[in-house]
Design a protein around this nucleic acid. Structure first.
Lengths: 241, 241
DNA sequence: TCAAAAAAACGTATTTTGTACGTTTAAAAG
DNA sequence: CTTTTAAACGTACAAAATACGTTTTTTTGA
């Protein structure tokens, strides 16, 4: 029986790929974090030959009995220890010559994690580090392109959904939120207009506490109200930040 | 040598997938067209066993020496005879059990074609037909989901780029263009505001001819000025329809 | 032949949203 | 106890989206 999706008559038996030929499928994860006012990326330096010393994204082969997005979740769990995080497919990279070793295509995913949540020791034990986006080193293969594409996705996504909260701790101040959006959009925003805009969305809950780390005066902490967000979404509300 | 993208230590030799196991990669194309005021989809009825009689998207396996997007172009060329058309990656479908026959993942692409351009005989010879989106039959496997996802992509894309012109003939009237956008967005638009908006983009060239097919009075034909569009794009102009 | 009908084409008013920027307030630091 | 800094609040103007009126062109059929 032929895979039903292959409609154009090519494979009529299960030897479409000859016995000695293989097409590998991997997944690579573009892991974004936010710290000290900067967007960061979790990348990883190979410690063993071949390619020892080359920076690349974290990734893995997709196993034969494994959903592709599960493979991405597995990688993230293995490296960061984190389970339930924002993870979304970005794009598939399928050039025949993208990997000099094998024919291998990669389904890229991007993830957003709260940088204070992850398991530091686990990350370090895998040779992974957080790099500020601006001074990212050259990465292996087409991983630079993957980062650029994922960043674009993140920007578009951030404009339509209050996705940024995935990158901040539970409690955050409005100036912190603004810093994050400035880092994502790579441009400065007017603090007065930003506050007005973000409060008008009505998905922030003001807390009694203040955070004094950012300024003398301190700023009130807020939290994101996911329930209210859901409610408003369902009633057709439009979120643009 | 290990594929460099597989960073998480799994495959250390080229037998990560056992000799008797294979992971197939296919591509499926969601082909949109526009005719008689409706968005249409090119789908195809298998004529041979197995799955004879089941409707599905057009697709093919990705060959071992072939870029994934080239595979999609090849499929389109084979079925429609068309070469240089709008084609973009949509999403990759990678559930382990999505195809009951094999482990096979599919990189979906969506395409926009001018419905009067394609090669009718070639299409029919492959058992493919144009279906109005609204009364699409149930499709094979996860192809229904593919269509839904691609339609969403198309909607987003159409809002940010004057992509709709890909679906119309060279010459078209403003009411026709409006019909197209109404079909894409699935909602009615005010004809006066639509005209104002679309003309304000300054990428339409008014011709001397009129098209009388749509109304008694007839409407002036326009064409899309791709050069001017490029110019404006490069000078940072913002297109939203 | 000419009035009614229909849709194209043009125009105006109102509302909403975005942008620019002034003022007040709270707390720390000299 | 004044100065400094950033948070928090507010106002004015510009641009964009929306709602809807009017004129024009042509066909249809009374």
């Amino acid at each position: 029986m032929t895979p039903s999706s292959a409609s154009v008559a090519h494979a009529s038996n299960n030897d479409f790929y000859a016995d000695n030929e293989k097409l590998y499928v991997a997944t690579d994860c573009i892991v974004f974090g936010f710290d000290e006012g900067d967007l960061k990326l979790l990348i990883f330096k190979r410690r063993v030959e071949p390619d020892s010393g080359i920076w690349s994204l974290i990734g893995s082969f997709v196993q034969l009995d494994e959903d592709v997005n599960d493979a991405a979740r597995r990688v993230l769990k293995e490296i960061t220890g984190l389970d339930e995080i924002f993870l979304e497919q970005s794009k598939t990279y399928g050039k025949a010559d993208r990997d000099p070793g094998y024919r291998c295509l990669s389904v890229a995913h991007y993830a957003l994690i709260r940088i204070d949540d992850y398991d530091k020791e686990l990350v370090e034990s895998h040779g992974a580090y957080w790099y500020t986006l601006k001074d990212l080193p050259k990465l292996a293969l087409d991983h630079d392109q993957m980062v650029a594409d994922a960043l674009n996705k993140l920007r578009r996504k951030a404009r339509q959904q209050p996705i940024g909260f995935e990158l901040l701790p539970e409690k955050f101040t409005i100036p912190q939120l603004q810093q994050l959006y400035e880092a994502i959009y790579q441009r400065e925003l007017d603090p007065r207009n930003f506050r007005k805009k973000v409060l008008s969305l009505k998905v922030l809950v003001k807390l009694e506490e203040k955070d004094k780390s950012g300024s003398k005066r301190g700023a009130f902490l807020y939290r994101f109200d996911a329930e209210k967000y859901q409610e408003l979404l369902e009633s057709g509300y439009n979120f643009e930040i």
